[in-house]
Simulated scan of single mutants.
Amino acid sequence: MIAQRKDDHVQLAVEQQQQHSGRNQFDDVSFVHHALAGIDRPDVRLATSFAGLSWQAPLYINAMTGGSEKTGIINRDLGIAARETGVPIASGSMSAYFKDPDCADTFSVLRKENPDGFVLANVNATASVDRARRAVDLIRADALQIHVNTVQETVMPEGDRSFSSWVPQIEKIAAGVDVPVIVKEVGFGLSRETVRLLESLGVRAADLGGRGGTDFARIENGRRPLGDYAFLHGWGQSTAACLLDAQDAPIPVLASGGVRHPLDVARALALGASGVGVSGTFLRTLLDDGVAALIARISTWLDQLAALLTLLGARTPADLSRCDLLINGELRDFCADRGIDPRPFARRSGGLDVPHEMTGSTR
C-alpha cells in the first residue's frame, strides 16, 4: 500500500506539472536594471554557505520520493544527476523504510550513485530520534530534513490527525542527531512566526517550501474517491511571500516551491534565501526525457544563474541580497497586510560604485 501511494504521488505530481498555468508570485518580483552594473564572468562564484554547511552552488534537488521499485529507479537517476552536476540532493520521506526495511535500497541508492556529494535524509515530524538516526545512517546523510505537512496529512485519506506532538518531537530530533537539522514545508509555506519557533527548537535552517509548485492537497484529494477536499487546493503562502515574511529571520532560510527557471532562483536568492530547491520541474524533465536531459538541464541552469549574477553585478549568490528589487501585484498586497515595507527593496544597492580607474577619466 505504501509503495502504491508513493507511485501515485509521482504520477499526480507530474500531471500537476503538465497542468500548471505558468504564473506564480515570483512574477511579482523584478530586478531594477542598472545598465552598467555588470561584472566579469570569471569573477562570479556560485558557492554558498549557511548554518556551517558549504555547497558548490545555491541550487539543490529537493525531496521527492522513494519506497517502491519505480521510485527507487527515480532516486537512482536523481543521484546520478546530483553527482554529475555537483548539486546537493535531498531524499524523499523515508517513512516507507521504517515500515518496510526491504525498500531501504530505494533510498540508499542516492548515496550509492553519489558517494561524495551532499545528501540530506528526510523524515516526518513524528519520527523518533532513533528513526531519525537510522535515516541519517542509511544514506550517510550530511544533514537531516524534517518535513512538516499538516495540510497534506489532513487531506490524505490515511493521514495523521494529531499534530500537537510535532513541536516537542522536532526539538528532540534536533538535539538527538549528529547532523544539522533543516525543517521544510512541503508546499504550503512557513510563516515568520514558525521560523522563529524553529530557531528556538534548535533547528539550524528552514526550507520555506511555499505555494506555487506541487500542491499536495490537490494530490491527496486526487486519491480520495469523492475528491471532497478541493476547497484546500492552493492553501498557504507562496514561496516569494514567505521569503518576504522571513526577512531578518534568526536562522538561514532556503526557498523551494514553484521555482521554474534560473530567474526564479536569482529572485529567491535576492529575497534572502541561502539556497534554492527544485523538485517538480526536475522530476518532469527526468521522466519525460531521461537522466542525461536532467543533467543537461541542471548544468544549463547553473550556467544561466552565473550569467544572471554577472549582469546584476553580484560576485556571489549572497551579493544578490544587495540588488534592487521591485515588489508588485498580489505580493505587494501581502506585504501591506503583514506590515512589511516593500519600498526599501528598490533602493538597496545605494547606486553604482565604479572604481575611478575603470572610468578612464583624467580629471
Rank of each mutant, 00 (worst) to 15 (best):
R5Q: 06
H9R: 05
V10C: 08
S30C: 12
H34F: 08
A37H: 09
G38N: 10
L46H: 04
T48E: 07
L53V: 14
W55R: 09
P58R: 08
P58E: 09
I61F: 03
T65K: 02
S68P: 14
I74A: 12
R76F: 07
R76H: 14
P88I: 13
I89H: 11
A96T: 14
R111L: 08
V119D: 03
L120R: 03
N122A: 03
L138S: 04
L144F: 07
T154E: 06
V155C: 03
P157W: 12
D160I: 03
Q169G: 08
A174V: 00
V183I: 04
V186F: 14
V195D: 12
V195I: 15
L198D: 07
L201T: 06
L208R: 05
G209A: 08
R218G: 04
N221M: 06
D228L: 08
H233N: 12
G234W: 03
G236D: 14
L243N: 04
L243E: 03
A249C: 14
I251G: 05
G257W: 08
V265T: 10
A270I: 04
S274T: 03
V276N: 09
S279V: 13
L286R: 01
L286H: 01
I298K: 03
S299L: 06
L302E: 09
D303S: 14
A307T: 15
A307L: 15
L308K: 06
L308F: 10
R315K: 12
R315M: 09
T316I: 02
T316W: 00
R322M: 11
N328W: 01
E330Q: 09
C335P: 00
A336E: 11
D337F: 10
A346S: 15
R347F: 15
D353E: 13
D353P: 01
P355I: 01
T359K: 01
